[in-house]
């Protein structure tokens, strides 16, 4: 295998990894903020990917979905938080896990009811259907676009959390929600905003991934497992850990799919097992 093919595979992996990062960072943020484990996170991703499919059917392009799908996912997240999940804040983690898991089943079954069990393709938007050539490398321009969006999102998120008043409130709520309430801030609103934001990020990942992998009802389940691997390796609540872990498994998956296509997904979990064997607390070394 030539170096060029390897570099191409690695670049592809960066694209996949960035989608995994956007997917996982919402999960890790909601946990960091509220100590809330969301098993419905993959469902947000899946619902949004289906919305992207429907939008591409109606308008002929998936591009508007990049804006609309995250909004829909945010609305879905917000509605489930208000109607169901806020009742579980005082319950043990196990109860939260099971309630959100049930929510994920409801979402998956609803989508199957509307769109059927069979997978569907989502066309790559026309402007990005070509390839970009730089140096000797040929790279599909949609993947380059995905990387660009993901980098922009990551930067914007870092700025929002580290540099804005809202970010300071989020960090404060994560540190001590009760104290924040005593200081006169409504931590419930911060939680709601975080839920909506986390949902929107999962939604963006779903909309970005739809043209690359198509849509099918079980994709939410698969995405949830991937997001778990990312936070197991990167540590819950850690942005840089999530980025590192997501890129690592994205590149692993991409390179393996050239060497051994049948084992590409397997190796994501293989890498996880190997890392855990030597570093039980993950890449960043926190438990």
């Amino acid at each position: 295998m030539s170096a060029q093919v390897l570099i191409f595979g690695a670049l592809n992996g960066v694209g996949i990894g960035m989608i995994y990062f956007i997917l996982s960072v919402g999960l890790t943020m909601i946990f960091g903020l509220m100590q809330f484990v969301n098993f419905a996170h993959g469902a947000f991703y899946m619902v949004s990917a289906y919305a992207a499919f429907a939008i591409a059917q109606w308008t002929g392009s998936v591009l508007p979905a990049l804006l609309i799908s995250p909004l829909l996912a945010a609305a879905f997240a917000l509605a489930s938080e208000r109607l169901l999940l806020q009742r579980t804040y005082s319950l043990p983690h196990e109860a939260q896990i099971l309630i959100t898991f049930a929510l994920a089943i409801l979402a998956q079954e609803s989508v199957t009811m509307i769109f059927g069990t069979l997978g569907k393709n989502v066309p790559v938007p026309e402007i990005f259907s070509g390839v970009v050539i730089f140096g000797g490398f040929v790279y599909p321009s949609y993947r380059l676009f995905v990387v660009g969006i993901a980098v922009a999102v990551a930067l914007a998120m870092w700025l929002a959390i580290e540099r804005t008043r809202f970010g300071a409130m989020v960090r404060a709520a994560a540190e001590n929600a009760e104290m924040m309430g005593l200081l006169g801030f409504d931590s419930r609103k911060v939680f709601m905003a975080a839920f909506a934001f986390g949902g929107a990020l999962a939604g963006l990942a779903g909309a970005l991934a739809a043209p690359l992998r198509g849509v099918e009802p079980l994709m939410g389940r698969e995405a949830l497992a991937i997001a778990f691997v990312v936070v197991i390796l990167g540590g819950l609540g850690s942005f840089s850990g999530a980025l590192l872990a997501a890129l690592l498994i994205g590149i692993t998956q991409s390179l393996m799919s050239m060497i051994w296509p049948g084992g590409a997904h397997l190796m994501i979990y293989g890498v996880m097992t190997m890392i855990l064997a030597f570093r039980p607390t993950g890449l960043m070394g926190r438990s």
């Binding site: 936070v231 197991i232 819950l236 084992g263 979990y269 293989g270 097992t273």
Partner: peptide, 29 residues
């Protein structure tokens, strides 16, 4: 590997290993 992590991590690891088993069965037809 799993019991070294507690609480939420334990739950996530059980799911990740189950997924690994599925892909293992798929990879060795």
């Amino acid at each position: 590997l799993i019991v070294r992590r507690q609480g939420v991590y334990f739950v996530m690891l059980t799911l990740a290993f189950a997924q690994m088993g599925f892909f293992l069965a798929l990879a060795f037809p």
